Amino acid sequence: MKWLITGGCGFIGRALIRHLKTASPHDQIRVYDNLTVGTRDDLALEGHFSDHDETNLLSWTVGTTLIKGDILDADSLRQAAAGADVIVHLAANTGVAPSVTDPIGDCRANVLGTLNALEAARHHAVGRVVFASSGAPLGVQTPPLNEEMAPHPASPYGASKLAGEGYCSAYFHCFGVETVTLRFGNVYGEGSNKKASVVAKFIKQAMAGETLEIYGDGSQTRDFIYLGDLIAAVYKAATVPGIGGETFQIATNAETTIGQLTDKLVYALEEVAGIKANYINGETRQGDVARNYSDTRKAAKMLDWTCQTQLDDGLRKTVSFFRN
């Protein structure tokens, strides 16, 4: 297979490349990234790669190729997609807080960027597009979240991801582009050292000797999924036949409060790295939802996928990565 991975220098993209090198060593991989978060050096750590001669984008090479480009550059993205069998669209503005600070920038990246990826797929008859979404489009709900709920986004980020989901559905029904939308839970794991999500942030703060700050009283809940489990779901979404136009909740079907997560992480920090961390409770963050976890039965049925890693084990692996 020929894979085009937008945002492939990032946390999830690099993990997907590692997985492909094991599961499909003869596949050809193009990484399309603007290098604002991930870098060439980050990608190089995963093995050898070469920068592509962008004047000859019809030629695919064995292994991993890096193309520097922005998803808002429709022409460049369309050229990169030529000949691809699947596009895994990971590039995005991520997180609630940045979307509250800059909702227009969030819209451009997550709506227009996704539309450009879908147009590239339509133009080149790419076999499938896997779209990275989240639980944020559903917003304020009584969990567990499932695919049939009516969306009520509580942040600009949720609204922009909902728009991306809508375009995926439209391109499947109007143009026959086989789109598969994955609503990721809160992802953590090795390689997250540049992420600002709660697990990575807390580990970095603890290792710097800083006090951890929980937003609000810590009773808000999330569904924390280990990176390796998530990547297995992405691979299934790209390769399982007959799932075009579908949306899947990809999480653990377990509700964990931020307070519980912090306690488990503090324990893992001391057990694995010998670090004693302290935490305090701060102000509630604007745009956050109170409860969030997912019903993953549809993914189990149609993708033959379930989460395999318990939170305690995943946290120990993540702390070990940061320690090393």
Rank of each mutant, 00 (worst) to 15 (best):
V37W: 09
A97D: 03
A206M: 05
F202P: 00
Q141L: 06
V62T: 15
E213L: 15
L303Q: 00
G127H: 11
G191F: 02
A84T: 04
G127W: 05
L230V: 09
S197H: 15
D313P: 13
R291K: 09
A273E: 01
N193G: 12
A196R: 14
D313A: 12
F49Y: 12
H152V: 11
L227P: 00
S155Y: 04
V289W: 01
E255S: 15
V272T: 05
S59E: 14
T61W: 08
A237D: 00
Q79T: 12
G189K: 02
N281S: 14
A109N: 08
T318S: 06
T101Q: 15
E255V: 11
I250M: 04
R40S: 13
N186R: 03
T179G: 06
R291S: 13
M149H: 12
E165R: 01
K68G: 07
A206C: 09
V100E: 06
V187Q: 01
R297C: 08
V180S: 07
E255F: 09
I17G: 03
D223L: 05
R40E: 15
T61P: 10
T114S: 03
G245R: 04
T309P: 00
Y171V: 04
T64K: 04
A136Q: 04
A82C: 14
S134Q: 11
E270S: 11
A268P: 02
A206F: 00
V88K: 04
K21Q: 14
K276S: 15
G314Q: 00
V129I: 11
I275F: 06
A117C: 10
A120T: 10
K204D: 09
D51I: 15
T142S: 13
T39H: 08
Y293K: 06
D312T: 13
L265I: 08
A44M: 12
C107W: 15
T114M: 02
E210R: 15
N34A: 01
G13T: 05
V31H: 08
G189M: 10
L265R: 09
G139Q: 01
R40W: 13
V126N: 02
D73L: 06
A91T: 08
D27K: 02
K204N: 13
P143H: 06
Q79D: 14
F224C: 00
E54F: 09
R285G: 12
T22A: 14
K301G: 10
C107T: 15
L112T: 13
H89F: 01
V86L: 06
V140F: 11
R78P: 10
V289H: 00
L115I: 13
S134T: 11
F11W: 01
E213W: 10
S99E: 01
T318I: 02
I243E: 07
D106N: 12
M1H: 07
G176M: 10
A82V: 14
G218K: 08
D41F: 11
K68F: 12
P98T: 03
A132M: 10
E46L: 11
T318E: 00
G135E: 12
S160M: 02
T256W: 05
S59M: 14
I87H: 04
L212H: 03
